[in-house]
Amino acid sequence: MKKPIEAIVKAGDLPVGFTAQPGSTVAFKTGDWRSVRPVLDREKCIYCGFCYYYCPDGVYQDMGAEKWYKPDLDYCKGCGVCAHECPKKAITMTLEEV
C-alpha cells in the first residue's frame, strides 16, 4: 500500500519565497502541540490580570464583567508562564490527554 503524503500544500502552489499573508494564524491554529493546558480555579482568582499581561502569546481574553481571563486554547502553547506568575496559584497546568 502506498503511504499517504503528510503534506499540507503542493510545492507548485506555495507562494514564491515561502512568504505568508498577514493574519494566517486565523486559519492555522498554532496551539495543537501543547502538552499541558492552564486550568483556572475561579474561586482563587482575584482578577489581577497577571496571566493576561505575562502570556507571551497574548491568548488571554478579558472577560470584563465576569471578572476573569479566559485563555484561547487554539493558540495557547502550554508554556506555563501564567501559572508561574499567578500570585494566588489559581492556575494549574494540567496534562492534555487524548
Binding site: V9, G17, F18, Q21
Partner: peptide, 28 residues
Amino acid sequence: PVIKLDIAQPISVGLLAPPESYTEARKA
C-alpha cells in the same frame, strides 16, 4: 522585485516550515 516588504501590502518573510511543508518549500 517579486518579493517586496511593503507596509501597504504586508507579508511575512522567513517563515518556519513544519514537516508538512518543508519538503515542498525545498522542492519549489
